[in-house]
Design a protein around this nucleic acid. Structure first.
Lengths: 217, 217
DNA sequence: CCTACCGATCGGTAGG
DNA sequence: CCTACCGATCGGTAGG
């Protein structure tokens, strides 16, 4: 089962890497073992951290021997890269969409908050790995990730700045507002670990309200 | 050059470490090697995570052999416990103080936010280890920590609930508000890693404003 | 996809 | 506080 055609960058490859959710994932032709490995790895990295997760444990949850993992992935490090940059790309794609919309800055920020809350609620494993385990990325990738993150933050800052200029938002330091928003969302990990007394919708709406009205002029 | 007198815990020992290390550490009576180990460990655990930090690396930054660490600490695990429960205790002590004050709920929450922001700014290493590495606590301690954290959150929820009852705060779900606040503060880790364009005071005031006005009735 | 196995490194102990 | 060293486990490879 060769996967070399992945280098043919021309195709659509709509299916190209949909490790997306650890959910049901119904119709899937070539939902390769590779995807299963990535999904199980994301879950394991979230639970125990990257460094404390062993390839042997991962192999066991996948149902093969450790050595066999290397037929699907190049290294432990590559698994981390795949998970993190997959999630990061989704964030960037979403921001691209929001950025070109004809909406108020406040509305844009609200949509971005809702996006992150939903990532945290529905794609917990990958998102958690991205936000907590990026430090274990190996070197060209670490620098790359930090750069992507910084530029993402700067683009959000620009939206906030615009909002201030338009008098939609109070005159905060945009950098602080963006950090506050992006980090607040991470608190939902405790909702995940709890008995879930509140619905995802309640969590989302309350968090959005708290963060948005704190910003409103 | 024998250093056995380190066990004579009575003396002043102002000179105790100044020659070999460039470290300043001024007035400190019995600032035992143990403390040095804990401080260096906190910094290392923050940088690389608990699991990826080796006792050999830690020993090197302390300036002794790995085996010698065990004259001061029982195990790697014990180091983590010390760091985390030390920070956790400070949070609990602070909450105790705030809780008995005769202030509005909103003011209490503000003080709690300021406390956490300052912990994040001034005691970054320990606080970061507590918030990010608690998952690596070994077993009676892990359950203990989770229990302490839950009860801490519940006490903050009670303050918010009181604030809603008093019409100081808008009717949010207290649980969500508390998660939002406690997590937002963690975003300051990126300020630490940045070039610090903004002062600690700016960070604190802006974050407090964002989170408090988002809560205000 | 497996068996067999490598060198490196881990946390920790013995004994002085 | 050190030297010497233990058993366990790690990520990964060879070869089929």
């Amino acid at each position: 089962m060769k996967r070399d055609q992945a280098s043919k960058a021309g195709d659509m490859e709509h299916q190209y890497e949909c490790l997306s959710l650890g959910m049901a994932q119904p119709l899937r032709r070539k939902s390769s073992k590779r995807e299963v490995i990535l999904i199980k790895a994301a879950s394991m990295f979230k639970d125990k951290g990257f460094a404390a997760s062993s390839m042997r444990d991962l192999a066991e949850t996948v149902g093969i021997e450790a050595a066999s993992l290397y037929n699907h992935i190049k290294s432990k490090s590559e698994i981390l890269q795949e998970i993190i940059f997959h999630a990061a790309t989704e964030c960037n794609v979403h921001l691209e969409e929001v950025d070109v919309e004809e909406k108020s800055s406040l509305k844009k920020i609200e949509e971005i908050i809702r996006f992150h809350v939903r990532m945290m609620l529905n794609r917990f494993e990958e998102y958690h790995v991205m936000t907590h385990e990026w430090i274990h990325l190996s070197e060209p990738h670490l620098t790359n990730f930090i750069g992507q993150r910084r530029s993402y933050v700067q683009r959000l800052e620009a939206i906030v700045e615009q909002g201030i200029k338009n008098k939609e938002m109070k005159p905060v330091v945009p950098y602080v507002a963006v950090l506050t928003i992006l980090s607040a969302v991470r608190g939902l990990e405790f909702w995940h670990r709890s008995q879930k007394k509140y619905s995802p919708q309640q969590m989302e709406d309350n968090m959005v309200m708290h963060l948005i009205t704190g910003l409103q002029a």
